[in-house]
Design a protein around this nucleic acid. Structure first.
Length: 289
DNA sequence: CGGGACTCCTGAGGGC
DNA sequence: TGCCCTCAGGAGTCCC
């Protein structure tokens, strides 16, 4: 599912719903996620309070009790549902009705919270994961080790990017998808950033001009910021943990628009799909050089 | 080390 | 209906 804006939206809604609640019970329906869920890790959460929820690129960081960090990655289809038993309208209007009973089989982990509330982790494809760390050590975990700056970080800038791509023979699409370079971007946002910058996804980074690089950095910041503001992109199965849909997908200029007309008014070319590193890229053959 | 291919998993949708 | 193919917001591993 989710790239940085979606994870940020999930984080904000989780903050509102489950922060400060005590975890009473945990049920693992299927712990065979990307990495097998560590049972002793997850059961250490029992009786502990969810104190804080943070985000680092596409990772959610739950700070639980005094010394536990639960690191969560949503993979492609991971999502959280919050169920408040006291609020019938909420429960029925979103989770149970919207997805009928069909989706229940993908409820992988259920956290039973105070006041009969529940936090459900649902993941169709099981590419997400949960890992547990000591608060003092979680920053050293292997997933964080090589993460580059996020688009909105101050050190995600022209000088940094120029230095990073120096001597590399890869395409710009590939580089932007690489979490070691800039973290938090994924297939949707990279396609949109390159369209707005007028750069073809398969352009080799050695051929980028300074002006190109400046445009890419600027558009990355602009697009990510705007998407968070709009509640992320809701395509397929994304929604925040309170069931709200984002609106950024309505602003997509190229992603998923194969065969449609380019959105630039003076252009009559059709958006084209191209495979790069086994992922779909969408671009306008006229507007992106 | 860089880069490409392949892998995990489940479901949707199209063609025949 | 069923079968087979391709595709899907991710990212780690293996091999040349």
């Amino acid at each position: 599912m989710p790239e940085l804006p979606e994870v940020e939206v999930v984080k904000r809604s989780l903050e509102k719903k489950v922060q400060n609640l005590i975890i009473k019970k945990v049920k693992i329906n299927d712990g065979n996620l990307r990495y097998k869920v560590n049972k002793s890790g997850i059961f250490k959460l029992l009786g502990k309070r969810i104190k804080k929820i943070e985000r680092r690129s596409k990772f959610l960081i739950f700070k639980v009790g005094n010394n536990i960090v639960m690191l969560v990655h949503l993979g492609m289809t991971g999502k959280f549902f919050f169920i408040n038993k006291k609020n019938k309208k909420f429960k029925t209007s979103f989770y149970y009705n919207l997805n009928k009973n069909k989706d229940h089989k993908h409820d992988r982990i259920i956290f039973f919270l105070e006041n009969k509330q529940k936090l459900i982790y649902n993941d169709i494809r099981k590419f997400g994961f949960f890992k547990f760390f000591d608060t003092k050590k979680y920053r050293d975990n292997p997933h964080f080790k090589n993460l580059g700056p996020e688009p909105l970080d101050r050190n995600c800038n022209f000088e940094y990017f120029k230095k990073y791509i120096l001597g590399k023979s890869r395409t710009i699409k590939d580089i932007l998808m690489d979490q070691k370079c800039i973290s938090g971007l994924g297939n949707i946002y990279v396609n949109e950033i390159l369209f707005c910058s007028g750069i073809k996804p398969n352009k080799k980074v050695v051929k980028l001009t300074n002006k190109d690089i400046k445009k890419i950095i600027l558009n990355a910041k602009k697009i990510i910021k705007n998407s968070i503001k709009l509640g992320g992109s809701s395509i397929k199965d994304f929604s925040s943990s309170d069931g709200k849909k984002g609106a950024f997908q309505q602003t997509f200029k190229v992603y998923g628009r194969n065969g449609e007309n380019c959105s630039n008014t003076d252009c009559n070319k059709k958006i084209t799909r191209l495979k790069i590193s086994n992922r779909s890229s969408f671009y306008c053959p006229r507007c992106q050089k």
